[in-house]
Amino acid sequence: MGPLVPQEIIGEGWNFFIAFIVGIGFGFALEQAGFSSSRKLVGIFYGYDTVVLKVFFSAALVGMLGLLMFSLFDWIDLNLVWVNPTFLWSAIVGGVIMGVGFVVGGFCPGTSVCAAAIGKLDGLMFVGGIFIGIFIFAESFPLVKSLYMAGNFGHLKLSTVLGISQGFLVFLVICAALIMFWIGEAAEKRFAREDITREV
């Protein structure tokens, strides 16, 4: 059955409308979770607020479980679902740069747009920074092109690498996530910062 647009079960013209609806849900979820506040977001790195961990992993768990279930019931053809290609080295180095950016700036791109939408000027500043960063990347692209293209493994799934079924991998991720949730909530008590959590 699904995905509906790539199989032309519903017209291509609807795709942008769907994108807009998806975006509304995305933005709403982020803002409701408190992702429009940088002090709440970075809480995970100091232990006083682990909302990022909880929201990020519970969303990922629901996403992977749902996809697997849909595929089992033939509701979605996983061959038509985009799997991010793996370029190992650029993913690692890019991730490192993003990680520093995250804890310095207090946002990631989606959350900064969301923060800017409710009037956070630091969010707006972060968005401006992203524009500059992207521009710099494009200008320096010839210099980093070899890194950008290095370690291409194509549309590789982790279950293939580990040689286990997708269902079993998802189960392992669930176990890991539930342990992390537990640790996260313990950390919130251990590193509680009433002064910060009251304000944000």
Binding site: V93, V100, G105, G106, P109, G110, M125, F126, G129
Partner: peptide, 24 residues
């Protein structure tokens, strides 16, 4: 915030996506 944004913008292009597009 500006510096963080610049870094994140750069990293997201190198890493082919950000927290939502690549990680989540």
């Amino acid at each position: 915030a500006l510096i963080g944004g610049i870094l994140f913008g750069y990293g997201s292009q190198l890493g082919r996506g950000c927290t939502s597009g690549a990680a989540l």
